[in-house]
Nucleic acid binder design. Structure first.
Length: 274
DNA sequence: AGAGATACCTGGGAGC
DNA sequence: TGCTCCCAGGTATCTC
């Protein structure tokens, strides 16, 4: 499922193809999504040129030459592909954005959890109001031990739920939160506010390392995620606890256990994670 | 304000 | 084989 590394991989793949390209036509096939897609038909997109392709958290942003921004969220099963018209439309491809030179931006989402909408930032190129509540980027300098320590004071909820809270740090979903907690040796059930400064530092370092490794590997292919060209990410080969419930911990051999936190299953090693 | 639960959606797998 | 049930999970929204 697309988390930050997957969206970053998509943004990097789209950037050279879409930057400076003009939209010629829009086709919406399935108006019923988490948010209806029909406004895209009426948004007067044909003739607009993409000025920049950006990522913020798990959101993909295409800045247009009229100051508006096309905002995409892949939900848990969204896939974006760039293909020509010769490829037949797949069952769950809901939107086609046609670009010059027979290039089609295809938006697929079997579970309809994705969002594709047009936004109007206060200033062109800035984040649209829809993203105002997002926390810091985990790979920016703002995400450091002191920040995590300060924001977690007084929090009694589980550490993993806190780490996945988009208003604190954005883009860390279930896979990478699970892996980062293992790398840092911290239990997902710990109260967020119980971490020492040193533990906050270890966790911040682990989050950044796991995300960097995943981006370098082209993301993780679990269930639905695919690259823009349809290929799979390579990071699943590096997963150490996610999806390994019952299997021995590769460090100590203790069987990996799971616990349900915030409605999400969370794998951990009861021996290595304190 | 924070914590916890729930709805949204559909494909895939388990179990019968 | 075909049916039902459950699970995957980011986000919004609700209650307490």
């Amino acid at each position: 499922m697309p988390e930050l590394p997957e969206v970053e991989t998509v943004a990097r793949a789209l950037r050279p193809h879409l930057t400076g390209r003009r939209i010629t036509r829009v086709e919406v096939f399935s108006p019923k999504m988490r948010e209806p897609l029909t406004p895209l038909m009426e948004a007067d997109l044909p003739g607009r040129t993409v000025l920049a392709v950006r990522r913020r958290g798990r959101y993909l942003l295409l800045d247009l030459d009229d100051g508006r921004t096309l905002l995409a969220h892949l939900g848990m099963s969204g896939v974006i592909r760039l293909e020509g018209a010769e490829v037949p439309r797949r069952k769950h491809e809901h939107v086609f954005l046609f670009f010059e030179e027979d290039l089609i931006f295809r938006f697929e989402c079997p579970r309809r959890f994705s969002v594709l909408k047009i936004c109007s930032p206060k200033c062109p190129g800035e984040d649209p109001p829809e993203l105002a509540t997002l926390g810091v980027e985990p790979l920016s300098e703002a995400f450091d031990a002191e920040y995590f320590f300060r924001r977690s004071r007084g929090r009694t909820g589980p550490l993993k739920v806190f780490l996945m809270n988009n208003e604190i740090v954005t883009g860390v979903g279930n896979i990478y939160a699970t892996e980062a907690l293992f790398a840092a040796g911290l239990r997902p059930t710990r109260q967020a506010g119980s971490l020492s400064r040193k533990e906050c530092g270890m966790l911040v370092t682990a989050v950044r390392q796991v995300l960097r490794n995943a981006i370098a590997a082209g993301g993780t292919t679990i269930h639905d995620y695919r690259h823009v060209d349809g290929s799979e990410g390579k990071f699943e080969q590096e997963l150490r606890v996610y999806g390994r419930a019952g299997q021995p911990c590769e460090v100590c051999g203790t069987p990996i256990r799971t616990v349900r936190l915030g409605g999400r299953s969370s794998a951990f090693c009861p021996h290595c994670q304190k």
